[in-house]
């Protein structure tokens, strides 16, 4: 019954960033640009943003000045493909079409670097997922995936990160699992990684199959998570255990 009360209490509460569940020292590491290792990728992204690439001989910076606020609004609807697109996907698309440059694979270092450079420009801004009704079906599928039990351990995202957030799995505090810090520097990875990588972690953790990076299932989950964490500040590059 104690748990039921806890659940009811959480349902009414505001979303809680994983930052609030970290030690004072990790919070300080995240907040300090001179100690946050994710800033190494940020700096690389800044350099890549200025670099001319591809047959078009254009740099990102030739078209884009400030991208403040952009990351807070992704994933968005992409009319060209009539599908949702996340920030990394948008950068891939821009690179292919505007720069006519060789594709950067998901989770590659340059794509993570460019993504975190753009995402950081929204640091401190509230996650504001677009209300575009065309996103609604995919977002609903994402919510269904979030609540779907899977894998040999037969657990859903929601069972841990919604119904049992704040409790301890072994010694690890279960966070609410919000998507406001990506790409993030995860100490476990000793590297920067995307939300898709983190989702993949959980899927394999419950001994389930994990779709390939870029798969529609991830986009759908990303859409739902953006809605679920609406209002939380963008923290990219967040630091997480």
């Amino acid at each position: 019954m104690r748990w039921l009360l806890l659940l009811l209490g959480m349902a009414a509460a505001q979303p809680r960033s994983g930052t609030q569940d970290m030690s004072r020292e990790l919070q300080a590491m995240q907040a300090d640009d001179s100690a946050n290792p994710g800033m190494l990728w940020m700096q690389e992204g800044e350099a890549l943003f200025q670099r001319r690439e591809g047959l078009a001989g254009k740099a990102c910076a030739d078209c884009h000045a400030s991208l403040a606020g952009v990351a807070a609004r992704y994933p968005a609807w992409d009319p060209a493909t009539a599908a949702p697109i996340d920030l990394a996907g948008r950068i891939q698309q821009c690179r292919a079409e505007r720069q006519q440059a060789a594709p950067l694979p998901r989770e590659s270092e340059p794509l993570l670097a460019l993504t975190v450079f753009v995402a950081r420009q929204s640091r401190g801004m509230a996650l504001a997922p677009p209300a575009d009704p065309r996103l609604a079906p995919a977002r609903a599928r994402g919510e269904a995936l979030f609540r779907q039990r899977r894998g040999q351990l037969n657990l859903s995202c929601a069972q841990c990160h919604e119904e049992r957030a704040g409790l301890r799995l072994g010694s690890a505090l279960i966070p609410e699992g919000h998507a406001n810090g990506y790409p993030q520097y995860r100490l476990e990875w000793q590297a920067l990684g995307s939300l898709q990588r983190r989702l993949r972690n959980c899927m394999v953790g419950v001994r389930a199959t994990a779709p390939a990076y870029g798969a529609a299932e991830y986009l759908e989950l990303e859409l739902f998570l953006a809605q679920r964490g609406a209002g939380l500040p963008v923290e990219a590059p967040a630091v997480r255990p």
């Binding site: 899977r150 894998g151 351990l153 037969n154 049992r164 394999v204 001994r207």
Partner: peptide, 23 residues
Amino acid sequence: IMPSYGAVQGLRDVAPAFRDKPI
């Protein structure tokens, strides 16, 4: 939420290494 340690039915998307095997 307790996994069914001896059951393999009713599961979905089980990773190949664990498919049709109880925990």
